[in-house]
Design a protein around this nucleic acid. Sequence first.
DNA 1: TATTGTTATACTCTATAACTATA
DNA 2: TATAGTTATAGAGTATAACAATA
Lengths: 146, 146
Amino acid sequence: MSLGRLDNFIGFRLRRIQNYLSSAFTAESVALGLRPGEFSALAVIAANPGVSQGTLAREVGLDKSAAVAVIDDLERLRLAERRRLTADRRRHALYVTGDGEAALDRLFAKLETVERDVLNALSPDDLQVLSSLLDRIYHSCFRQDA
Amino acid sequence: MSLGRLDNFIGFRLRRIQNYLSSAFTAESVALGLRPGEFSALAVIAANPGVSQGTLAREVGLDKSAAVAVIDDLERLRLAERRRLTADRRRHALYVTGDGEAALDRLFAKLETVERDVLNALSPDDLQVLSSLLDRIYHSCFRQDA
DNA sequence: TATTGTTATACTCTATAACTATA
DNA sequence: TATAGTTATAGAGTATAACAATA
């Protein structure tokens, strides 16, 4: 089976590698009761304690209505919690619980294992180069951040 | 907004870049009436004239039942066609039509534009390095191909 | 009047299994 | 009995708009 012209595009190779990484990781994620996307939401809350739902949604690429379901789920699992802000009672500030931090430790450990397996074709120097090339692309695309 | 520990993982950056690439491309794709995934199916048929539905499905990562809907769509748009094989009348051989080739030319041109925009932070030499690093990862993951 | 979060709804995707026609 | 393709169906994911509370 040939991929033909598709094979000339970097985006196609990015997608194949990324699909592989994420399917390997998803198994660990669902083992903790998390659906795809909930892990990154939890990680972003952990990195930004008190973040609002709207800001989180924008950052993770979710619709604000989809964010409701994600946070409902995280609360149900006692991994994160909403706290109504007194300053602006429309807003919820989001925080990760102790259980949430423990889950993140476990998930990040798995993520490291998965990446190590997939990236073991490259030397540490190669990885450094790859990382810096991706950074340069990333920053040229997303420099206009909020 | 910080991404916290997430930012240390190459897979996360791969995903952001790939999301960006694919959302920019999807617009052109739907303008031609194609749904996501149908473009790559069409490209693989073009690269492998006479391929069967099952083989195509495996290659593109579709379920065989999902492949039916994709090919129905491609036939309805007159971009590809099924031909019943006389040797084994259970099978359909798939072919791209003239319209299909024209659509592919247009779509691949768009793909080049999108990639150029996103990857313009890198010099041709850098792109060559990136491409070869991704290839090495890819081949170490998928060497056990069919 | 605008914004934050919520609910409702519809649409798309995906995954599964049952079915047909051929082998 | 096994395989290629099809159909039917249910579940998850996503996108949209209407809504309540608050600003």
